[in-house]
Structures are given as C-alpha cells and as structure tokens.
C-alpha cells in the first residue's frame, strides 16, 4: 500500500479538480482516472480495517460508485482525496457494524521489500520468540491485533501507522479534532502493545 501522505501528481496528468469537474458532468473517462489514482490507497484502508480481501474489493467498488452518485454535492471545500477517504471510512465502519459476528479473514500478498525494512530486519535479528515468527504468522498476528481495536481506534492506526498520514489530515478525514486523533492513537497503541507483547523489547 502506498504511504504517501499526499496524492502523487504528475505534471502531464490533469489534477483532481479538473477531473472532478468533468466527472460531475457525467464524464466516466475522467472518473475512471480518479478511480485508478486512488483505488489502491482506498483498498489499503479498507483491507486493514476489515482484514478481508474479498470484503475490501467489494467495498472499494461501492465507495467509488456511491461517490460518483454524490459528486454533484461535492463543493470542493476539501480535496477529492480527503473526501473519498471520508466516504470510505464511513462506509467501512457501517459495514463492520453489520458484519460484527461474521469474520472471514484473508491475507494480502506481501511485497518482498518488507525483508529490507529496518523494522523487520531488527525484529528478525533480535533474540526473542518473535525471531522465529514467519512473515505469514506475523501478518496474521498484526491483523488479529488490529481487529481487537474499536473501529474508531483502528481507523487512526491504519491511517497514521500504516498509511503514514499526518494527524491533521486524519482529523479532517474522520471529522474530529487533532487532539482526539492523538488520544485515539495513544490508547490504540497501548492496546496493541498488550496484544503484541511477545514482540516487546
């Protein structure tokens, strides 16, 4: 998943505003460009919230279809990027409230770059039971630990610690203050630390 806090913009490609303006007039080609620009990021958010590839794919499609329906109501007070994230967050939380008891977990593929990540290298080198943990097991443990969090706490952990977004951007996306975002991060990490105690230094 991409960790860029801001959408990558190529000078040769039209910016979001122009694409949104065309899409709101019914230009599906313009909307298709927006979809291709952001769908992987939205997938990352939804997958880490649900821990299910299948649910994530379905939700990504729903998010973009519903967003298209309400494009005319988008007044451009925030970026399209923030706006689509807010729709994805609300829709995923609604979905999770309905899903509650049915949890079919499935794991994503992992990019081989993880083996060069300093955090993973350090974890593998350390003298602890965690050293023998395979990448697959680690992935499962991280997903299960995430699922123990409430939806709101999980959202901030996914947006900040996984997707690398700054606090103020998360505050805009979730519709709460930066202080609330920090407070949720604080308590979520404490809970995660309890779940992942075997990796503690």
């Amino acid at each position: 998943m991409s960790t860029d806090p801001a959408p990558a913009t190529d000078t040769n490609q039209p910016d979001d505003r122009a694409l949104v303006a065309s899409a709101s007039q019914g230009d599906l080609g313009a909307y298709d460009q927006l979809v291709r620009r952001y769908q992987t990021r939205i997938y990352g958010l939804v997958y880490n919230m649900t821990s299910s590839k299948e649910d994530a794919e379905d939700l990504v499609q729903d998010v973009f279809v519903k967003a298209f329906s309400s494009l005319k109501g988008f007044r451009g007070t925030s970026s399209f990027y923030t706006w689509i994230y807010r729709i994805a967050i609300n829709r995923t939380i609604n979905f999770l409230k309905k899903r509650k008891k049915r949890q079919a977990l499935s794991l994503n593929d992992v990019d081989e770059g993880v083996e060069r990540d300093p955090a993973y290298v350090e974890l593998s080198a350390r003298e602890s039971p965690a050293r023998d943990t395979s990448l697959l097991e680690l992935q499962e443990k991280l997903n299960k630990a995430l699922l123990t969090l409430s939806e709101k706490h999980r959202t901030v952990v996914v947006l900040h610690d996984i997707q690398g977004l700054p606090h103020e951007e998360i505050a805009r996306m979730t519709g709460c203050s930066e202080g609330t975002v920090r407070s949720r991060l604080f308590y979520a990490r404490q809970q995660l630390q309890g779940e992942l105690a075997e990796f503690a230094p």
Binding site: M1, D117, A119, L138, Q139, V157
Partner: peptide
Amino acid sequence: LMSLKKYE
C-alpha cells in the same frame, strides 16, 4: 510493526 503492513 504496524508500518510493516504497508508492504501488503
């Protein structure tokens, strides 16, 4: 640890 999930 959580940041490792960005490689998924």
